[in-house]
C-alpha cells in the first residue's frame, strides 16, 4: 500500500462519532475521503466554515466557497459560516475535538515543530499554533523519517516550535506512538515493518506497549 494512504487510513480510525474535526492542509485533508462508515463528524475549516463537504463538481464550483487550503469545496446540509474571530474562538476555546496536522519534527515531550526551517523561505504558521494550543486532541500525521532517512521523532526538536507539549498521538507509515506523561509509548506498528526498523528510524526514547498491535 502507498505510504500516504497507509497513514491516512490509520488516521481515519482516530475519528469518533460526533467529533468536530479540523484537518490540516495537505495530507491530513485527505482523511476526509476515508471516514469510516457509521461515523458522523463535522469538519471545521479555519477560514470560517463548519460542515465542509466533498469537492464540488465542475457545475458546483463557487469561488466564494473554499477551505483553509484555498481549495474549492462544498458545504454539507447543516453547515454554517462565520468570521475568522469566531473560527478561532472555536479553536482556542476547546470546542474542536480533534485536529490532524503534519509535522517536520515531534519530540518525546510532545513538542511540535511544523512551521519553519531557519534559512529557508518562511511562509508563516497560518492557524497551526492556535490549533495545537486549543484543540482537545492533536494527532500528527507524517512520514516516519525524512526523505534521506533521518528521524523526525526526536529527543528534542531542533526546528522552531509550533507549540510545547501539545501532541497526543503520532501516526506514521510505520507506527502509532502516544505521547504520555511518562514519555513516548509505541502502540502499533505497520503490517510491513518490524520493531527493529521502527527503532532504527526513531531517535527519541520510547517504551513498547504490550501487546504491540499491527495496523
Amino acid at each position: 500500500m502507498d505510504t500516504r494512504l497507509r497513514i491516512i487510513r490509520r488516521v481515519a480510525a482516530e475519528l469518533r462519532d460526533g467529533d468536530y474535526v479540523n484537518l490540516g492542509i495537505g495530507l491530513p485533508t485527505l482523511v476526509a475521503d476515508h471516514i469510516p462508515p457509521g461515523i458522523d463528524i463535522v469538519l471545521h475549516s479555519e477560514n470560517g466554515l463548519l460542515g465542509v463537504g466533498p469537492s464540488p463538481t465542475e457545475a458546483e464550483v463557487d469561488p466564494d466557497l473554499i477551505n483553509a487550503g484555498k481549495e474549492t469545496v462544498t458545504a454539507v446540509a447543516g453547515a454554517s459560516y462565520f468570521s475568522g474571530a469566531d473560527s478561532f474562538a472555536m479553536v482556542r476555546g476547546g470546542h474542536i475535538d480533534l485536529t490532524v496536522l503534519g509535522a517536520l519534527e515531534v519530540d518525546q515531550a510532545g513538542n511540535l515543530a511544523n512551521w519553519m526551517v531557519p534559512g529557508k523561505m518562511v511562509k508563516g504558521m497560518g492557524g497551526a499554533m492556535d490549533l495545537v494550543a486549543g484543540a482537545r486532541r492533536v494527532v500528527i500525521a507524517m512520514e516516519h523519517s525524512t526523505r534521506d532517512g533521518q528521524p523526525r521523532i526526536v529527543p528534542r526538536c531542533t526546528l522552531p516550535f509550533t507549540g510545547l507539549r501539545v501532541v497526543n498521538r503520532i501516526v506514521t507509515d510505520l507506527a502509532v506512538i502516544d505521547v504520555t506523561r511518562d514519555g513516548l509509548v509505541l502502540r502499533e506498528i505497520a503490517q510491513h515493518t518490524t520493531l527493529e526498523a521502527v527503532r532504527a528510524l526513531t531517535s527519541a526514547a520510547f517504551v513498547v506497549d504490550a501487546p504491540l498491535k499491527r495496523f
Binding site: S55, P56, T57, E58, P63, D64, K70, T72, V73
Partner: peptide, 12 residues
C-alpha cells in the same frame, strides 16, 4: 473576477 487559487473538482 473572483479568481480561484486551487480549483479542485470531483467527477459528476
Amino acid at each position: 473576477q473572483k479568481r480561484i487559487e486551487r480549483r479542485v473538482v470531483r467527477e459528476g
